[in-house]
Design a protein around this nucleic acid. Structure first.
Length: 659
DNA sequence: AGTATCTGTCATAAT
DNA sequence: GTATTATGACAGATA
């Protein structure tokens, strides 16, 4: 068994390394020890094999929080984060896009190879091209090697799912059986190291494969010993599997339950992560062999996600559900994929991973994400954009008002760019329609006395609601909803300042007064013969309007600051907890080390004797480790004791005795 | 009616 | 000195 383990470990080390790159941990010992869980999927973010339940990763990956209103964006952000992490590993990153793993299925007897009926057997596949008639429990699979099969070939869709059958010409099967049997016997008698086998090269493989002794247990009611078969198999140098062209039917019934799901050859990462019929190998009708991996039943290479629901193609979650996943699939290598692959999140991720470093990879991703975003309600995105709950536009929009996105998208940024102030935050003033500008010709100054109003209904609607007159200001653009409301609605929603401004026949609306350039405003005040009260009124309008915008911006900044501080608090709390845990672990380790040290010291002292043959006590002596690694026994100096007359004598005597 | 939130406004300091 | 901006405080409106 040790030899088996040795060869198994050596033989699978390459494959293990490959799998480890993508987060799959191979536990060889556990398999050989009968625990039959040689493969485990890491839960880490690098585990691209997993059909990652991104919904569960939401809000805890890098503290990244996704807007709750947009579950689709969860997948988008999660996918993006994953890709970012991968990209962060270094550029260019090229993941192995193919896993050179090979499967040799046990076939009870070569005569049993035949075109399978459309029976579903115990797999969930309706019909495979070839299907073993032997009991699946007796089917065994071996890992073989062939590089000639490309991942595209293997992942080619078709009605050949997971039945796990090798289609090999009968005569070749017989030949291979004999070779394997012959080789297996040799291997049992004198195990050959991998290196030796590597040197032996193809010839030995030829001999191996050509050995004619049947391996099938169809004639043998007692299947061969598992160790024996593993010895046979593992004796093969894994790097010479490339030359193993024909697949070798083998019967390892004992292993069947454990290795029920072997891997196909040249499984791409994309294919390998597919759940269910992961290892489907599309049979080559005219070819030498056809491998169709069985539906994975055993733990070996059980690559489906920890989310068991993902094992069903129809229940894939995550980005898989996104409409563009199919598009991504189509871009890859012609391996249009089985239906189970489509919509697989991991697959999409791996598509992206595989495209890393390639030109246009980001474009592909962007196209995908663009499609995702396009399928999302723009309002959701708008909500994502606004990082605070401040409803700046809420007061300015009536029930019929356009959405915030419409306002922001149609607003003219040049408005505040000319103004030079408060450009950082959009407000309803952006959407000021030009029609709200009064006409100079119709303006006749009217005196009024009221100069101060506490107009809390100085709604920003004044900025968004059109006026009956027009304003010649060139910088003002017409808003998208200038003519939406009638005059009554306008009057109802206009602020008091706006109404008074209209009553005064001021050629500007309150909004324009607020946002117009200062030069123009001064020109307005000076050049139209306004009374001081009118001037004060217009100044108040402008002042209050600007202050209102400033207040809005200030509040938004405050909310942003609060949000940022809350996030920082969470981050620091997490860091503090982590440091506390580290300190606890360190203290625990330190205590354990101290105990070990004390134990060793006592042990050492119990073996040491002084000049008079008395044992050394740890109370009087200590062990000191010098820089060069030497350990010396030192007498504990007790100056306080030495000064005392009572305790000084025994110490002196001890010191005298010791040399 | 009490409360929370939003929003406009004022006062004031800073630019 | 003026205009503008930022911000705390206050108060009214509203849910």
């Amino acid at each position: 068994m040790q030899n088996v383990k040795k060869y198994f470990t050596e033989g699978l080390i390459q494959f293990t390394i490959l799998l480890s790159l993508i987060g799959v941990r191979v536990d060889v010992d556990s398999y050989l020890n009968g625990s039959y869980s040689p493969l485990e999927i890491n839960d880490g973010p690098s585990s691209a094999y997993i059909q990652t339940p991104f919904h569960s990763l939401r809000d805890n990956w890098d503290g990244y929080s996704v807007h709750p209103k947009c579950p689709e964006l969860d997948y988008f952000f999660a996918c993006r984060r994953l890709l970012d992490e991968v990209r962060a590993l270094g550029s260019p990153i090229r993941f192995p896009t193919q896993l050179n793993a090979w499967l040799v299925h046990q076939v009870p007897d070569s005569s049993e190879f035949r075109e399978p009926p459309n029976s579903t057997s115990n797999s969930n596949v309706s019909a495979g091209p070839l299907e073993s008639t032997g009991e699946e429990a007796n089917d065994t699979e071996l890992l073989a090697v062939d590089e000639s099969h490309t991942a595209a070939q293997l992942s080619e869709p078709g009605p050949y799912p997971s039945t796990g059958v090798c289609e090999i010409p009968n005569e070749e099967v017989e030949e291979l059986k004999g070779r394997i049997q012959e080789y297996g016997d040799e291997g049992r008698e004198e195990p050959v190291s991998l290196t030796q086998l590597a040197l032996s090269s193809t010839l030995e493989h030829e001999g191996l494969l050509s050995s004619g002794a049947p391996l099938s247990s169809s004639e043998d009611p007692h299947p061969p010993d598992i160790d024996q078969h593993w010895s046979q198999f593992l004796s093969l140098p894994i790097y010479e599997f490339d030359d193993l062209d024909p697949l070798v039917p083998q019967q390892l019934s004992d292993l069947d339950a454990n290795i029920s799901s072997a891997i196909s050859q040249d499984v791409s990462l994309r294919d390998a992560m597919v759940t269910g019929s992961v290892y489907d190998m599309i049979p080559q009708r005219g070819g030498v062999r056809t491998l169709v991996a069985r539906q994975p039943r055993g733990p070996l290479f059980r690559l489906e996600s920890t989310n068991s629901s993902n094992s069903s193609p129809g229940t894939t979650t995550g980005l898989a559900a996104l409409p563009n996943a199919v598009v991504v699939n189509g871009t890859r290598n012609g391996s249009s994929s089985h239906g189970a692959l489509e919509g697989c999140l991991d697959e999409a991720v791996f598509d992206q991973i595989n495209l890393l470093g390639l030109d246009g990879c980001l474009e592909t991703m962007d196209v995908q994400l663009l499609g995702i975003l396009q399928s999302i309600d723009p309002r959701v995105l708008e909500d994502l954009d606004s990082d605070s709950g401040l409803s700046l536009e809420s007061s300015s929009r009536g029930p019929d008002s356009p959405s915030a996105s419409e306002v922001s998208s149609s607003s003219s940024s040049s408005f505040f760019e000319d103004e030079g102030g408060a450009t950082g935050y959009s407000s309803e003033v952006d959407s000021l329609p030009s029609k709200s500008i009064a006409n100079y010709d119709t303006w006749s100054p009217v005196d009024f006395s009221e100069s101060v109003w506490h107009d809390h209904s100085y709604s920003s609607a004044a900025f968004s609601q059109p006026s009956a007159t027009t304003f010649p200001h060139k910088a003002i653009k017409e808003g998208p909803f200038s003519d939406e409301d009638g005059e009554d609605d306008e009057d109802r929603e206009l602020s008091r300042d706006e109404l008074r401004t209209r009553a005064l026949h001021v050629p500007f609306s309150a909004a324009e007064i607020v946002i117009m350039p200062v030069e123009e405003f001064l020109e307005l005040l000076e050049g139209h013969g306004l009374s001081p009260a009118q001037v004060a009124f217009l100044r108040d309008i402008r002042r209050r309007g600007k202050n209102k915008l400033a207040a809005q911006n200030c509040r938004k900044r405050k909310l942003d600051a609060i949000t940022g501080l809350q996030e920082e608090v969470e981050r620091l709390q997490a860091q503090r907890n982590r440091l506390l845990r580290e300190r606890q672990h360190t203290a625990k380790a330190l205590g354990a080390a101290g105990q070990r040290m004390e134990h060793l010291s006592r042990d050492i002292f119990s073996r040491l004797r002084d000049g008079s043959g008395r044992p050394l006590t740890p109370e009087r002596y200590t062990l000191q480790c010098e820089a060069n690694g030497r350990v010396v026994v030192q007498n504990i100096r007790r100056p306080s004791v030495a000064t005392t007359t009572a305790g000084g004598k025994p110490d002196k005597r001890k010191k005298e005795k010791k040399p």
